[in-house]
């Protein structure tokens, strides 16, 4: 028994370490090499994508509907598996990850959706606490962490409100608080301003920028030309499943 344990320990451990080390050395947190994704019906959604994102970056992913943005997000969350290529997120090889390891992997990713996706029957506090329950934090920690994150997103006074009593902007802040309360390494925002007016959109973007300044890698999928052009961050543009441009301090590329 003892021998067996040692054996298996010595074969798996170094591999894991090596991977993490590799990722740490070149500071890369998301790596896609020649990634393709084809659905069983129709044309491929992504064709030989190469994308490298470093720790602490702020990246916009832009493109029309049908460009493959949603597919990319789903691959990064391991909701879908790639058809071909290599994908590594935070040291996890996502084409090889076991089903039961996925929850642990996702706990390091905060996610915000266009339609907020809050639990409508629970108040603001419970919606945020929910994320902490899932990673099995103690009641004591939850009571400490939730109010402090609600204060950051500016909702400290509304912790008892139900989602329907809040404006769109406020609901998105709750979603953001929920995504951040577990201190994720990466924050994925899928059209976070899609349902918001310009004023609220800007406030959400300011919050995302602030989060990024505190060290979290932020990926924002968006249609919002104005915001992309104003913020002067890295912009990756997708078109029909291919990356057509990837620029530091880029802008929204006009379609013609």
């Amino acid at each position: 028994m003892e021998e067996k344990k040692n054996k298996s320990g010595s074969t798996t451990m170094p591999v894991k370490k090596k991977k993490k080390k590799m990722a740490a050395e070149n500071n890369e947190i998301i790596t896609l090499t020649n990634v393709s994704k084809a659905y069983s019906t129709g044309a491929p959604a992504l064709k030989e994508i190469n994308l490298h994102i470093n720790k602490g970056e702020f990246v916009f992913i832009v493109g029309d509907s049908g460009s493959g943005k949603s597919t990319l997000i789903k691959l990064l969350l391991r909701e879908l598996t790639i058809s071909d290529g290599y994908i590594n997120v935070m040291g996890y090889d996502l084409s090889k990850i076991k089903h039961r390891k996925i929850p642990k992997f996702r706990r390091n990713i905060g996610i915000v959706f266009q339609d907020f996706r809050l639990l409508k029957d629970r108040n603001v506090y419970d919606n945020v606490a929910f994320a902490q329950r899932i990673i099995q934090k103690s009641n004591k920690e939850i009571k400490k962490n939730v109010p402090s994150i609600l204060a950051i997103v500016g909702l400290a006074g509304k912790y008892k409100a139900k989602p329907r009593q809040l404006s769109g902007g406020e609901q998105q802040r709750v979603a953001l608080a929920r995504a951040l309360v577990n201190k994720p390494t990466i924050l994925l925002a899928d059209e976070p301003t899609g349902n918001l007016d310009p004023k609220n959109s800007w406030e959400i973007m300011k919050l995302l920028e602030q989060i990024n300044e505190n060290g979290t890698t932020v990926l924002v999928v968006t249609h919002n030309r104005e915001i992309v052009n104003a913020m002067q961050k890295r912009v990756v543009t997708l078109k029909k499943g291919v990356i057509v441009s990837d620029e530091e301090k880029g802008g929204y590329i006009d379609e013609d």
């Binding site: 929850p103 642990k104 996702r106 996610i111 996706r117 639990l119 929910f130 899932i134």
Partner: peptide, 12 residues
């Protein structure tokens, strides 16, 4: 869906 995205285990 939301629970799964946040990283809840199947059991949870």
């Amino acid at each position: 869906n939301i629970m799964k995205y946040i990283g809840a285990t199947d059991f949870f």
